[in-house]
Simulated assay, not measured.
Amino acid sequence: MMQTQEIQDYFLQLQQSIVDALAQHEPNHAFIQDRWQSDLGQGISCVLQGGEHFASAGVNFSFVEAAALPAAASQKRPQLAGLPYQAMGVSMVIHPVNPFVPTFHANVRFFIATDPQTGEQHWWFGGGLDLTPYQLIEADVTAFHRACEAACRPFSPTLYQELKANCDRYFYLPHRQEHRGVGGLFFDDFNRWPMAQCFAFVQAVGEAIHQAYLPLIEKRKMMPYDQSHLDFQAFRRSRYVEFNLLFDRGTIFGIQSGGRTASILMSMPPVAHWHYQDLPPKDEAQRALIAAIRQPVDW
């Protein structure tokens, strides 16, 4: 079995590369680097708020271990709940200022649980990346999905479609009967190949983070917008909050495991508005967005 230190080193390198790339857009605003330790483990939270182009950007690394794996981390393997475990990963959420730049979420993670009776180790990877636009620009969404597909292609000709379908199913708000965004990739309990091959796929997903999202920032961050665009952005961000608090397994795992609240809730947008009646779309880009989140599209 691979050494977990190699996985941890890669996660730290990925975190730094994403922070460095985002920092190029904010020469007058620096990321806060918050190194923390707790009874569960340690981590580095890199957060920028109130920037010229990022209302909030967080890129977090954490390593935790405890005597009992929470149920939220073992839904597909309930027999592992309660076993001693280690978990590590990188999670990022970017909420841009400009409503034409989508919100972006990605994470990659690794779990290993050990049976104290037999010494048997159970490991798996998880993660993915997904896009939440507020004005639907089809060319941008298509480019995002092609980068996701390119990451999957060397490993299996059908992997992209499988993980895209997983993403569409996972990022769904049943009480709203809509999806959080326009999808991407999602995988969990991922150990279908030897560990080295699974890790290579996780690294390909890490590269896709650069290829799929960062060009959209450069392309759209200076587009003109007005108050109606900001109002619709804040309305749609309320749905982002609803999903993260009600359904996101990472948030639930963090809370169940007694994790660090500031890092867990880093994903929240700084501004979100709730309306008793949905704010109606005012242009074709907003109408197209509503259609796309109600019925997944084969991008």
Rank of each mutant, 00 (worst) to 15 (best):
Y170C: 06
F144W: 10
G119E: 09
F110K: 06
D298W: 00
F11W: 06
L159I: 12
A30F: 02
E207M: 03
P194V: 02
G250D: 09
T103Y: 02
I255A: 10
A285N: 13
K221D: 00
D140W: 10
E6F: 01
C167E: 04
C152M: 02
G258T: 05
Y172H: 14
G43W: 05
R294F: 00
Q256M: 02
L214D: 03
I44D: 15
V64N: 03
P281E: 07
E178I: 04
G50P: 08
D231S: 10
R176Q: 15
H275E: 09
S74H: 01
M268Y: 02
R239K: 14
L12E: 13
R180Y: 10
A23H: 06
R169T: 08
Q286H: 08
H229W: 08
S263T: 15
V182R: 03
A23C: 04
G206M: 12
A72I: 06
L14D: 00
L216P: 03
A67C: 04
D188A: 11
C148Y: 07
F110D: 08
A106W: 11
N107P: 06
A71P: 01
I7D: 12
A151D: 04
D298T: 12
L40K: 15
F31W: 08
E149Q: 15
F63K: 11
Q37H: 12
Q5S: 13
D20C: 05
S267E: 07
Q121V: 09
L80A: 03
V241L: 06
K282T: 13
L230Q: 14
G254H: 04
A139G: 13
S238W: 08
A204E: 08
A55E: 15
I7A: 12
R239N: 11
K282P: 00
Y134S: 09
R153K: 15
R287W: 06
L40H: 10
E120F: 00
M268D: 02
Q37E: 15
H122Q: 07
H25N: 13
I7V: 15
T132P: 01
F54D: 12
R294W: 00
N166Y: 01
L83V: 00
L230M: 14
I7C: 10
R169A: 14
Y10F: 14
P269E: 07
A106Q: 12
T251H: 05
P280E: 13
S267A: 15
A139D: 15
H53P: 07
P270A: 08
M268E: 00
T158F: 03
R239G: 11
Q177C: 11
Q286D: 07
R220G: 09
M88N: 09
S17Q: 13
S45Y: 05
Q197P: 01
S228A: 14
S38H: 08
F111I: 05
Q79H: 10
M222S: 12
P78R: 12
G51P: 09
A30I: 05
D39G: 15
